[in-house]
């Protein structure tokens, strides 16, 4: 474990916590008989969260952590896997099933057909992988899928007029975690013999590059202290 990877995992954890906080905020609004103005805004405007991206991430974790009960690596590793699995599936459940949270989900805007991402990633994983075994192919599939899983969310953000800052922070943290992982791979490449994983590295690089324009608008909105807005 190195500082880049720990920072990456913590950033990833933060992104999940921000999303859970946002869902909790929406839920708690409903409890009030006369919703406060913030609640009114939250409940009326779309949450800006893409259910498609959340479903893709649940699939990423489900196919990535198949070995959670067979290969024990460390307590930290197992706990983090359980957190990511549990949170991604519960977020999907909330947006799909929870009577209040799903009202804040704008399915008319979140129209990205994520099937078009799943199939090519699966085909690519069947062709390019480190070992043609069931677990290895699904693990490789999860890497390819994670690289593109943010696309529905980024497209939804372009369509959402006012991006509330929790959603903006969520996407920023999600992009930052993989950027930190790239530093971790560089560090491990130079410090550990025969640590070479091209598939992981290229997928991680593509994933981070997809956030490039978001990062640009995110930092310029911070610098100019204006509302985050992505060009359509």
């Amino acid at each position: 474990m190195n500082i880049f990877r720990l920072a990456g995992d913590m950033t990833h954890l933060m992104s999940v916590l921000v999303l859970l906080l946002k869902i909790h905020t929406i839920k708690s609004c409903a409890g009030k008989s006369y919703p406060c103005s913030l609640c009114f805004i939250l409940l009326e405007s779309s949450s800006g969260i893409s259910l498609k991206t959340q479903e893709l991430y649940a699939l990423v974790f489900a196919t990535r952590y198949l070995d959670i009960f067979t290969d024990f690596i460390s307590v930290y590793n197992t706990i983090m896997k359980l957190i990511f699995l549990g949170s991604s599936f519960s977020i999907v459940w909330y947006i799909r099933r929870h009577k209040i949270v799903r009202r804040s989900y704008d399915k008319d805007q979140d129209t990205f057909r994520h099937f078009f991402l799943v199939l090519p990633c699966l085909l690519l994983a069947l062709i390019i992988n480190e070992k043609f075994t069931f677990k290895e192919v699904l693990w490789t599939f999860s890497l390819y899928l994670e690289a593109v899983a943010i696309l529905p969310q980024l497209i939804l953000l372009q369509r959402t007029r006012n991006i509330d800052n929790l959603t903006g922070q969520y996407v920023f943290l999600l992009g930052a975690y993989r950027a930190l992982y790239i530093l971790n791979w560089i560090y491990r490449y130079f410090t550990e013999p025969h640590y070479v994983h091209w598939i992981t590295w290229i997928s991680g690089l593509v994933q981070t590059l997809l956030y490039a324009d978001f990062f640009y608008y995110y930092f310029s909105s911070l610098k100019n202290n204006v509302k985050l807005k992505l060009p359509a």
Partner: peptide
């Protein structure tokens, strides 16, 4: 050992 090494990340 090599395989074990590869999958120690989240």
């Amino acid at each position: 050992e090599e395989c074990f090494h590869a999958k120690d990340e989240l």
